[in-house]
Design a protein around this nucleic acid. Structure first.
Length: 269
DNA sequence: ATGTCGTACTCCGTACGA
């Protein structure tokens, strides 16, 4: 006996402002679990009632005023929830849930990795130093050996690791999100934890694959200068359970869009 | 291609982060 789980990860850049398009995504895709980043919302102001009305009765929040913030919404009950603070900061960049699926419990990590500022030099840019420190802690936690239980990692990792994850590898090689120190570190974490890159399982290189287009482009679609900053990783035992993956490019053109699009995956459990 | 967003305070404009 098996069931199909639909899971979404989406950096929505303010959950309160984006509530209508999150509802649109839910109407179109009927996900079982929705992992949001950059909710920019203290937990007490999170629009939980609106999501509960749509069937997401189980909500794990790690939010704060103004910046960052993650939330995991679920139709399936949680057996446990957990939050981790990185770099000694309580800045709302992680929440994990364990889905109560009977014998098949699955853990889902939802991350929002620091963006890292503009200058890719930790000596002169504290934000980039913070990003590297965050990644070092992440490597210790999930990048040095396989997960002990079936686990999915999702979120805005703010790094486009592969040459075909950006519109121009050459032009972005010195741009934060695609510098060698970032891409090599992320790949080391992924391989060290034996994580499978689910998105690339469905859209192999050298095909371009993006989840983010800057607000600053005059015509984001025509210019198409995207990056794959959002990711879905699976622990070894789950890798062959995934049935589909869609980076929903259309959502970048929805009314008052986020600069990130939702990534939708389905898997059989 | 320093351009466009969202949030909070300095609160009908400015500063900051992304």
């Amino acid at each position: 006996m098996s069931r199909t789980l639909t899971l979404v990860t989406w950096n929505i850049n303010s959950v309160r402002l984006r509530l209508p398009i999150v509802e649109q995504l839910i109407a179109e895709r009927a996900p079982d679990v929705v992992c949001l980043q950059e909710t920019k919302c203290p937990d007490g102001n999170f629009p939980s009632a609106a999501f509960k009305k749509l069937g997401y009765e189980h909500i794990a929040l790690n939010g704060q005023k103004g910046y960052h913030g993650v939330a995991t919404l679920s139709r399936i009950p949680f057996a446990a929830t957990e939050m981790r603070a990185f770099c000694g900061k309580e800045d709302s960049r992680h929440v994990a849930v364990r889905l109560a699926l009977g014998s098949d419990e699955v853990r889902i990590h939802n991350f929002y990795v620091p963006a890292g500022g503009d200058e890719p030099d930790p000596a002169i840019n504290d934000k980039f130093a913070h990003k590297l420190s965050f990644l070092a802690e992440l490597e210790q936690w999930i990048g040095s050996g396989p997960a002990a239980e079936p686990t999915i990692v999702v979120g805005d990792l703010n790094i486009a690791p592969l040459p075909d994850d950006v519109w121009s590898h050459k032009k972005l090689i010195d741009v934060v999100s695609h510098t060698p120190i970032e891409t090599e570190t992320l790949e080391r974490i992924r391989l060290g934890g034996q994580w499978h890159d689910v998105m690339r399982q469905f859209v192999p290189v050298p095909e371009k694959l993006y989840t983010w287009w800057s607000y600053r482009a005059a015509d984001w679609s025509a210019a198409d200068k995207g990056r794959r900053l959002d990711h879905v990783w699976a622990s070894p035992g789950l890798a062959d359970r995934f049935r589909s993956m869609t980076a929903l490019r259309d959502a970048r053109g929805w009314d008052r869009p986020s600069d990130h699009v939702p990534v939708v995956v389905t898997l059989d459990l």
